[in-house]
Design a protein around this nucleic acid. Structure first.
Length: 574
DNA sequence: GCCGTTTTCGGCCCGACTGTTTTCAGTCG
C-alpha cells in the first residue's frame, strides 16, 4: 500500500520536475527511486523501521527523508508544492505518446491548454500548427496519442502478442535478404503485457526487408520508415517495430533491443566505467572505433565481466550485480518440469477424458499429471457432485501407469465459498491426492473480507494449493481485492503451495508476487489449467517463473513423483 | 538527487527517426 503510493508520488515528482525543465539527472533520480520502491518485496515501512532505507540503491538522505515524511503524514510536501505550481493536467499531456514535457509546456503556455479534451479540440481546429516547430503532422500525431491514451489497454496480453509475433517472424524469415531473426523487447523478456512487438533482423541488404515489412498486408499504418528502424501499426491495433543491423552486430543489437531500458542503462554504465562504450552495433573502446564484442550476447556480457543474463531477468532488479558476483541463480526451465497438477476433463468443463489428457502429457515428457475438475457449486462449469467424484476417484485409480506410461493422480479444483469454507467435505478431500482451492464467485468483496475468506481456506489441512490466487484476467478483469502479502505469509505458515496458473490470460500469481513468495520460502506449483490436450503448454508460466528468479527447487512440480507425493502429504501431517 | 577500485565534486547511457527545420530539437525506446 505504502509502496504503491510512494511509487506514484515519486513518478509524479519526476514528471513535474521535467515539466519545470529541472536537471534530467535529478528527474532520473526520482524515477529510479519510484521504480526501486515499486519492486520491493517488502513494505517500505518495515525497511524504514529497521533504518535500512539508505541501503536501497538510489535512496540517499534527501529521498529517505521524503519517505519518512510520507510514512508519518501520508504526503510529501515537495510533491504538494510542485502540484500547486503546475496544472495537474500537464502531467497527462506530457505522458501522451508523441508529446513530451517540452511540447506539453509549450502548448500550455501559449494556448492555455491543460486537459485532453481541450488539446483534442485545438488539434482538430488546426490551432497547434500556429506554434513554433509544429505543423499538420504534429497535430495528427497528437490526435493519435490521445486516441491511444483513451484506448487505455495500450499493452497487449502476451498470449495474444506472441502468436502475432510468431506470424510476423515466419513471414520475414522467408525473405532472401534476411539472415538472422529474433523477437526482442518485452516479448523476449516474457512480460505478461507487451507494449509493442520488437523484431530484430540482420541483413546485408536492409532496404527490401524494410519495404516488405511496411507493405505487408497486416499493416494498417506506417509510423516511421527508415533504413535501420521502421514502426507500424498492425491491423490488430498493436504496434510493431522492425530493426535491421549488419550480421556481425547481431548479438549487440539483440542485447540492446531486448532491454529493458533500465537493464541496458546499468550495463552501459559498467561499460563506461571500464573505458568502453556499448551500443546496438557492438562494444567499443571509448577512445576509438576498435570493436571488442558484437556477434553474440554471450561475448558482450563476457567482455563486461559477467555471464550471459537470461532475458527474463533483465529488469535491473539486481541481476547485473548478481551476475558480476557470479551469483545468478539457475532458473527453472521447461526440462525441469516433471508433471502438471492442474487440468480439467469432460467430467466438468474440459473436452478430453482423463486418459486422453494423460497421454498428451506423456507426449510432453511428463512423469505424472493430476486431474482437477471443478467442484459442485460451479454449476456453469459442470462442477462434479460428491457422489460422482467418488466414482471418478475409482476410475482414475484404475488407470494403469504401466499401460499409459505416466502416473495419473486425482484431485479437484474446489471452490472457496463466500465464507471461506470449501465446496467438498474434509473426508472427501482426504480421499484425493491433492486439492486446489480457488475463488470463482463473489469477487466484489472488500480486501479484508476477501483476505479473511482466502486465509480461512488455506488453514484447511486438505487444501494443498491455492489456485490462481488473485483471479485476474489480463486485460479483461482486475484482480479481486486481496492482501497478497498476508496470503504469502499464510502460505509460509501453513505450508500451502501457491499456484502460478500458466494459462496465458491469467499468469497468476504474477512476477512480482512470485518474487515475494520466493523471498518468503513459499513453494510454487506451475499448472496449465488446461481444458483440452492442446492447453497443456506451460511456456508462458515458465517464462513468468523465470522473471521471478524461480529455480527448480522453488517449483513443486519439478519434483520426481516420489518426492512430489511426500510434498503433497506434508500439510496433512502425513 | 545519488554516488565513489578515477572522485565527497562533478560526473551521471546511447542512437534513430520525425517534423520542421537551413542545422536540429524533441521524443522514443
Amino acid at each position: 500500500m505504502n509502496n504503491q503510493a510512494l511509487e506514484t508520488i515519486f513518478n509524479e515528482i519526476a514528471d513535474l520536475l521535467e515539466l519545470k525543465e529541472e536537471s534530467g539527472f535529478r528527474v532520473n533520480a526520482y524515477r529510479r527511486v519510484a521504480r526501486a520502491i515499486g519492486s520491493l518485496t517488502e513494505d517500505v515501512q518495515a525497511i524504514a523501521d529497521r533504518g535500512a532505507l539508505e541501503e536501497i540503491p538510489g535512496i540517499g538522505k534527501s529521498l529517505a527523508e521524503k519517505i519518512f515524511e510520507f510514512l508519518d503524514s501520508d504526503k510529501v510536501d515537495f510533491h504538494e508544492k510542485l502540484l500547486a505550481e503546475l496544472p495537474v493536467g500537464l502531467i497527462t499531456l506530457a505522458r501522451l505518446s508523441g508529446v513530451g514535457p517540452k511540447t506539453a509546456r509549450l502548448i500550455h503556455a501559449s494556448l492555455g491548454i491543460s486537459t485532453l479534451d481541450e488539446l483534442e479540440a485545438a488539434a482538430r481546429a488546426g490551432r497547434l500548427r500556429t506554434l513554433p516547430r509544429m505543423g499538420k503532422k504534429s497535430e495528427e500525431n497528437v490526435l493519435r496519442g490521445i486516441e491511444q491514451a483513451r484506448r487505455q489497454s495500450a499493452r497487449t496480453p502476451i498470449g495474444i502478442a506472441r502468436p502475432m509475433a510468431d506470424d510476423l517472424v515466419a513471414a520475414l524469415r522467408a525473405l532472401p535478404q534476411v539472415r538472422q531473426i529474433s523477437v526482442a523487447g518485452s516479448l523476449r523478456r516474457m512480460r505478461d503485457r507487451i507494449g509493442d512487438l520488437d523484431v530484430l533482423v540482420t541483413s546485408d541488404d536492409p532496404d527490401p526487408v524494410m519495404d516488405a515489412f511496411v507493405r505487408s498486408p497486416w499493416v494498417l499504418d506506417v509510423l516511421a520508415h527508415g533504413p535501420s528502424k521502421s514502426s507500424v501499426t498492425l491491423r490488430t491495433g498493436v504496434q510493431a517495430d522492425l530493426r535491421v543491423v549488419p550480421p556481425e552486430a547481431f548479438g549487440a543489437a539483440l542485447q540492446y533491443f531486448t532491454g529493458s531500458k533500465e537493464h541496458n542503462a546499468k550495463v552501459r554504465e559498467r561499460a563506461v566505467r571500464a573505458g568502453l562504450r556499448l551500443n546496438e552495433y557492438g562494444l567499443f573502446r571509448a577512445d576509438g572505433e576498435q570493436r571488442i564484442a558484437a556477434a553474440t550476447e554471450e561475448e558482450i556480457y563476457d567482455a563486461l565481466g559477467m555471464p550471459w543474463i537470461p532475458p527474463e531477468m533483465r529488469e535491473d532488479l539486481g541481476e547485473v550485480e548478481a551476475a558480476v558476483a557470479g551469483a545468478l541463480p539457475r532458473l527453472v526451465e521447461a526440462g525441469d518440469i516433471r508433471g502438471d497438477l492442474h487440468m480439467h476433463t469432460k467430467w466438468s468443463d474440459g473436452s478430453g477424458s482423463a486418459a486422453e489428457m494423460a497421454r498428451a502429457a506423456k507426449a510432453l515428457g511428463y512423469e505424472y499429471v493430476c486431474i482437477t475438475d471443478h467442484s459442485q457449486s460451479l454449476k456453469f462449469a459442470g462442477g462434479v457432485p460428491p457422489e460422482d467424484l467418488r466414482a471418478h476417484i475409482a476410475e482414475v485409480r484404475a488407470l494403469s501407469n504401466k499401460k499409459l506410461g505416466i502416473e495419473v493422480l486425482i484431485g479437484a479444483e474446489v471452490d472457496i465459498l463466500a465464507d471461506g469454507s470449501l465446496d467438498y467435505d474434509d473426508d472427501l478431500l482426504a480421499a484425493l491426492d491433492l486439492a486446489i482451492a480457488s475463488v470463482h464467485s463473489r469477487f466484489r468483496m472488500t480486501e479484508s473480507e476477501m483476505t479473511a475468506r482466502v486465509v480461512r481456506a488455506m488453514r484447511n489441512p486438505y487444501v494443498t494449493i491455492l489456485g490462481h490466487p488473485t483471479g485476474r484476467l489480463i486485460g479483461q478483469r482486475d484482480p479481486y481485492a486481496l492482501d497478497i502479502d498476508a496470503v504469502i505469509r499464510e502460505a509460509a505458515a501453513t505450508g500451502t503451495i501457491l499456484e502460478l496458473n500458466a494459462a496465458p490470460e491469467r499468469l497468476d500469481l504474477k512476477d512480482d508476487h512470485l518474487r515475494r513468495a520466493r523471498a518468503n520460502g513459499v513453494q510454487i506449483e506451475i499448472g496449465s489449467d488446461a481444458h483440452a490436450a492442446e492447453g497443456l503448454a506451460l511456456n508462458y508460466g515458465i517464462g513468468t517463473a523465470r522473471r521471478a528468479w524461480l529455480t527448480a527447487e522453488n517449483v513443486v512440480n519439478a519434483l520426481p513423483l516420489v518426492k512430489l507425493r511426500a510434498a503433497l502429504r506434508r500439510k496433512r501431517g502425513g
